[in-house]
Amino acid sequence: MRRALAVAGGGFLAGLAALVSLRGAGIAAAQGERPVARDPLVEPAGAVIGVFYHGARFTVSTAADPGPPGSTPGAGPAAVAVVVSGPPVDLHLRIKRRVWGAFWAPAGDVIFERVPEAYVVHTSVPPAELAAADVLRSLGIGYESLRSPADSASEAGAFFPELVRLKESEKLFQAAVVPFRAERAAGGDRLVTDVVLPARAPAATYRVRVFRFRGGRVVWRGEGGFTISRGAANALLATLANRHGLLYGLVAVVVAVAAGLLVGFVFGSVKGH
């Protein structure tokens, strides 16, 4: 009975700490965890889509948590999970089916509600060792947490693994157990991982959440973020193309004709077509 109360009390405190730590690391520090000035630290704070942009690399670091010494349950260093997610959108996709008995072609639609455009999870240990599946799902850790409850009986539920395949092929979804690097910093040792987003990741503000687990429970969590934005030239071209299509087309033609005449002038040759 006493043990059950102790577990319940511990769970309550951990839950309370997890809730309050969203606003800072103060409670975590009071529980004996290492105080840090800024946790998680995401560097750089943003990336700009310029002419030569081919994706962005962000370094996410969090204070290393060696944990209490000894061999009692829950002792030892905390396991870490880093979750990066883009803004949620309703994703309208086409289902590919066999047509005419030979070709794979779009035949039917499916809508996935509130799916992040990009989603990256890095964990220091296999997810099953972090916490129970339902705990991870409630925290938004892992692909299963992206399933909408309403999807389970619908086509979206059936095609969810295909969504993951599609997004993984574009590197917009990534889930991996990675060796976090240990780095020395002014505020103490930090665990570091690199999150690489492909050029297809849309311009948006991305949410970065870091969790520390010990004994199957969250002992600390923090939140940060970064922004991917379009550079001036890129934004100008995209805006022109999307909002002033006719003008954009005329400019594209004029420049192409000028380039063609220049090429003809420089090389002085006649090319067949």
Partner: peptide, 30 residues
């Protein structure tokens, strides 16, 4: 010219930068 303008105006699918890079490559290749 007609197709480029129509594609840009109606379908928003002309990537001018892509066309320009291809043009440079094809000019030299030709």
């Amino acid at each position: 010219v007609n197709v480029t303008v129509l594609q840009a105006a109606m379908n928003r699918t002309v990537d001018f930068l892509l066309a320009l890079v291809l043009l440079v490559g094809s000019t030299l290749g030709a």
